[in-house]
């Protein structure tokens, strides 16, 4: 049974009023799957994730989590709704220790001691360096900490903004495999990726966004064979292009 856990309907959003970056975007994330959003630079991928997280004002449309509207939520309430968000860069507090980063996100979790142990078991390198400042971590370990922070409140849905950005190819694969693995633990993932090949390797379903609109979507394994994909990336046929 794979029903929709997160759905976006007719979403129009942007930082400045009357200047939407996203127009009428529709998207469905099914339970326990990984859905990738790909598209050329400036397509509005990150904006879409931020609009779902409540960080970008939404002017029309709605976002539903488990059938309940969560459009324009206050970002600090996300966790209590079962939603988590891993930003692209600056996704950890560098001046805080690793243990402090985790304590911060765990402070509203009832069984925080157990959860902390679980997270340290899941990410042994973090346990090892718990007393260090997060700023001293390597690129891959930072992403690990960022994911651990997002997982702290046991979310059902996790939004990830380019988790592979700035990492070496080997670490990129590891981070994406980690995301894939989470879907087996009851976390559904919506992920923005620049690296199309890597994204399609781990994704179940894929949306292609350009010019702030939906272009096409389909199962990850078949989407590359769609001739339209190349055209979108090369700037050819686009929905909504002027």
């Amino acid at each position: 049974m794979t029903d929709a856990v997160l759905s976006v309907e007719g979403l129009t959003a942007g930082y400045v009023r009357d200047l939407p970056i996203l127009r009428d975007v529709n998207l469905t994330l099914r339970r326990d799957t990984l859905c990738a959003i790909i598209g050329p630079n400036g397509a509005g991928k990150s904006t879409l994730i931020k609009a779902i997280a409540g960080l970008v004002p939404v002017s029309a449309g709605r976002v539903m989590l488990d059938g309940k509207p969560i459009t324009g939520i206050r970002p600090d309430q996300m966790a209590s709704l079962g939603l988590a968000y891993v930003p692209q860069t600056d996704n950890i507090f560098r001046s805080l220790k690793i243990s402090e980063n985790l304590a911060l996100v765990l402070r509203r979790v009832p069984d925080r001691a157990t959860r902390l142990d679980e997270l340290y078991t899941l990410f042994p390198p973090l346990a090892e360096k718990r007393g260090d400042r997060a700023g001293s971590l390597s690129g891959g370990q930072r992403q690990m900490l960022a994911v651990a922070m997002a997982l702290a409140s046991r979310p059902r849905v996790m939004l990830m903004d380019e988790p592979s950005a700035g990492l070496s190819p080997k670490i990129q694969r590891e981070v994406l495999d980690l995301a894939r693995g989470l879907t087996e633990k009851g976390v559904s993932i919506l992920l923005v990726e620049q690296n199309v090949k890597q994204a399609l390797r781990v994704a179940d379903h894929c949306y292609i966004l350009a010019e702030g609109r939906n272009q096409i979507d389909g199962p990850a394994e078949s989407i590359l064979s769609d001739p339209a994909v190349g055209e979108i990336y090369l700037g050819g046929r686009r929905v909504g292009a002027a």
């Binding site: 960080l55 970002p75 996300m78 209590s80 968000y85 930003p87 507090f93 560098r94 911060l104």
Partner: peptide, 13 residues
């Protein structure tokens, strides 16, 4: 350090 991240980490600004 980072108001946006603090918010998504559950801190009410």
């Amino acid at each position: 350090e980072n108001p946006d991240l603090a918010q998504v980490s559950g801190v009410r600004l």
